[in-house]
Design a protein around this nucleic acid. Sequence first.
DNA 1: ATGGGCATGTAAGGAGTTACATGATTCA
DNA 2: TGAATCATGTAACTCCTTACATGCCCAT
Lengths: 190, 190
Amino acid sequence: MYLIDISNRGIMTERNRTKYIVLGMLTIRDMSGYDISKAIETSTNYFWSESPGQLYPVLACCLKEGLVRCKEQSTKRVKKVYSITAEGKKKLKAWLKKQPQNTLVRSELLLKLFFGGNVSTADNIEHIRQHQIQLEQEIGAYSAIREGILQKHKASSETKYWLITLDYGLKVSQAELEWCHEALQVLKGI
Amino acid sequence: MYLIDISNRGIMTERNRTKYIVLGMLTIRDMSGYDISKAIETSTNYFWSESPGQLYPVLACCLKEGLVRCKEQSTKRVKKVYSITAEGKKKLKAWLKKQPQNTLVRSELLLKLFFGGNVSTADNIEHIRQHQIQLEQEIGAYSAIREGILQKHKASSETKYWLITLDYGLKVSQAELEWCHEALQVLKGI
DNA sequence: ATGGGCATGTAAGGAGTTACATGATTCA
DNA sequence: TGAATCATGTAACTCCTTACATGCCCAT
């Protein structure tokens, strides 16, 4: 016997956080699905990503639930620009206030290193080296984005929070880079 | 028209990494499904977790594919102890040598902070404070595990890699803790 | 005129979790 | 003797990605 709430079916259950990133992005400015997708890629991607195949259905659901509205469009217009409704804002705020949880990390690199004793030291060193290169690129990208925010945007409540999350990325990546260096020294037997 | 490789169906496709953590754990010692589940919880959980509902079917699949074998059991014995086969070891090694990818991070905390301008500063401060407490506990737990490894196990190739992954957790958590401190100062306007 | 980026989607299915059922063993 | 933990498993479902289809717009 299963006691499952069947009314909660579909893609818009309590646990689906895609709708909150959609609503959140629409508090910054009115956007199309494509714009939201691009905004995620260039701002939250390192701690939260979404694929178009997930985004568009959720956006359609938000519209049906009255959390967003779509601007009147002529027959010619292809681009659909959405804005957040008062109800959408209310829903977003309620979620933002709730204690966050469910941090998920899945690092294939660490999983492979954990079992690294089964292959040669050279194999493991190579994995770490590759990661090192990637991290250096990421740190460069974050720094560039940071400069961009400071120059293009006025200091505001919004930008303050953007910088805080960016600084998380910078700080953690920097720590990872240091770890790479130390791990390589251990593996090289220095 | 869809050109999808239908032969790859089921739960044991190329992208399913659960089988590799199963195989990897069995290189440490022979284990039951339950043992593997516990081992994951106490060793790789902070960078790779698995639920029992995922683990048992994959273990059954590994058995069917000849990657693991199950020890002969009397009718009385309930516990099924598995060991890795030569073929299983070969498959694991091939995977370990391939360049890792697909690092996935989903941080609800950072997502909420990114949109933090929509709620009060106090709400955001509270989220960071909670995270700080959690981090301190985690760092304590990692340190305890580190001591445990150093005392219970002889220094070996295996333990060397365990310590490297553990040190990753320590280093990154420490950096996160520092970030918490800085972020709180920014939000408090110090 | 055509190739690339803009833009909106859908189909199929794999990955993974949750919520159970079921029964043995251990120990206070 | 009864609760906790050990132990194995399945059903149902959600989440998410991949791999397409489709067509517009714009610059070379």
